[in-house]
Structures are given as C-alpha cells and as structure tokens.
C-alpha cells in the first residue's frame, strides 16, 4: 500500500544472504513499518536479529531481497547508486556505534564532510555557520578546531550526531549510537538525539539493544529472528 503521507514506508521486507554450507540465511522475514515526520522509533532486539540490516536497507546502504522501502511514497530501494547517494546526502543522517570521524580532520571539518558529497544551493559559509551552530548545540563550540584524537568517546559521538544533522535530514538513522558509551554519556547522547530530532522535525529510527534508550522514543518495536515480534508490523 502506497501512503504518500508517510515519510517512510517499509513493506514486507525480506533479506537473504547467499547460501553458506547450503543453507540460505534469511535475516529479515517480511518486515514492514511506517514512520511519519517528527516521529521517533526504537528498534530493539538481540544481536543477530537483523536490526542493523533493516536500518542499512532503510538507509539504502544495502538492498532488500524482496520488499519495498518508500520515502514519501517513492520506492528508493531500486534507485541507482547515484540517486540513492544523493537521497542519503539530502534527506538522511546516520549515526553509528563508532563515530568514524576522520582523524586527520578537525571537529568542524568532520561535521562538514557530508556537505562535500554534492553541490548544493547552500554556500560553504552557510554550511560552516550551520556546523558551528550544531556543534554549539551539542556542546562542543569550544572544540571546533580539535582533532578527534583529542576528544573523548562521548564527544566524538556528539560530533557524529552534529555531522548527521548538517544537511538537515528528514530521517535520522542511528545504529547503536550509545553502544560504546557509559551509561551517563549514553543517556546524555540519547537526550541530545531526541532534542535535536524534535527541533529539526526529522523522523528518527534508533536501533539499540538497551531499553533505556528505546524508552526515550515515541514508539518501540522488537525484532527477533528477522520479524517484528508483535505481528511484525510497527
């Protein structure tokens, strides 16, 4: 069913991997979900349940075996690499468990990295101003010219959050964003994510296996053995 009003629509998604020892591994088995702007969703589940795979397929980093991923009604799972990349660049922000900051670039430069992927109407100066604002928002306004090696893990992850928001995405996808942080830092980051998502009116999907973070989201679903446990639909 095509619902153009929803920001994200995932329909009957299946993901199988090539046979290993003659047995096909089916990671996702008919997953569907829908998400509107401003909504937040936590996907809970144990390791190997398919959470990250689902997130990657939604973010067009991976292809479904069958099923559809629609963004504002358009099927994006069959687009070519260039179109998917542009879509990611303009509309999706990622936060991963590891910050993957470029060690040779400063904090400010790391936040600006996504802006270089495509030509935009926005000027470099405007991006820089936006990055500085975001870094101020995540509490790192005094660390703009620091290198990642000079930051703590929590600070790096906050830089990663700022980087995810630099292009003002419609959808933020966070894969275990607090997985490598202590509780306190993880809570702070969770708060920050929720606040920023609310401020920017973006949809947020967080894949986690911690209930504390999941509880901060508007909706929570659990994924087990490739299916949402409660009817497989969220």
């Amino acid at each position: 069913m095509n619902d153009a009003t929803s920001l994200l629509q995932v329909e009957n998604l299946h993901k199988c991997y090539e046979p290993v020892n003659g047995h096909t591994v089916e990671v996702l088995r008919g997953v569907s979900l829908r998400l509107d702007r401003g909504q937040s969703l936590a996907i809970l589940g144990p390791s190997g349940s398919g959470k990250s795979t689902l997130l990657h397929i939604i973010g067009m980093l991976d292809h479904p075996t069958t099923g559809l991923v629609r963004i504002e009604g358009d099927d994006v799972s069959r687009l070519n690499d260039r179109a998917q990349s542009q879509l990611r660049q303009r509309r999706i922000g990622f936060v991963f468990q590891s910050h993957h900051l470029l060690p040779q670039c400063t904090v400010l430069q790391n936040v600006l990295v996504p802006t270089l992927a495509a030509k935009r109407e926005v000027s470099s100066d405007e991006f820089t101003g936006r990055a500085e604002t975001l870094l101020e928002r995540v509490g790192l306004s005094d660390r703009l010219s620091h290198l990642p090696g000079e930051l703590s893990g929590g600070e790096c992850q906050r830089v990663a959050v700022a980087r995810a928001l630099i292009n003002q995405p419609d959808l933020i996808l966070a894969d275990e964003p607090t997985g490598s942080l202590d509780h306190t830092t993880a809570d702070a980051l969770g708060d920050l994510l929720c606040e920023l998502h609310a401020e920017q009116q973006a949809a947020l999907i967080v894949v986690t296996h911690t209930q504390r973070l999941a509880d901060r989201m508007q909706r929570v679903v659990s994924l087990s053995d490739g299916q949402f446990i409660e009817g497989g639909h969220a």
Partner: peptide, 16 residues
C-alpha cells in the same frame, strides 16, 4: 574502511 563506509552513508557516491 569504516570511514569510507561512513562517507557512503552520508551520501558520497562510490565514484566520489
């Protein structure tokens, strides 16, 4: 590879 994957995730095309 992690950094490059991240760049892919934030919208860099493979050619880029």
């Amino acid at each position: 590879s992690g950094e490059l994957a991240l760049l892919r995730a934030v919208g860099y095309e493979r050619s880029q």
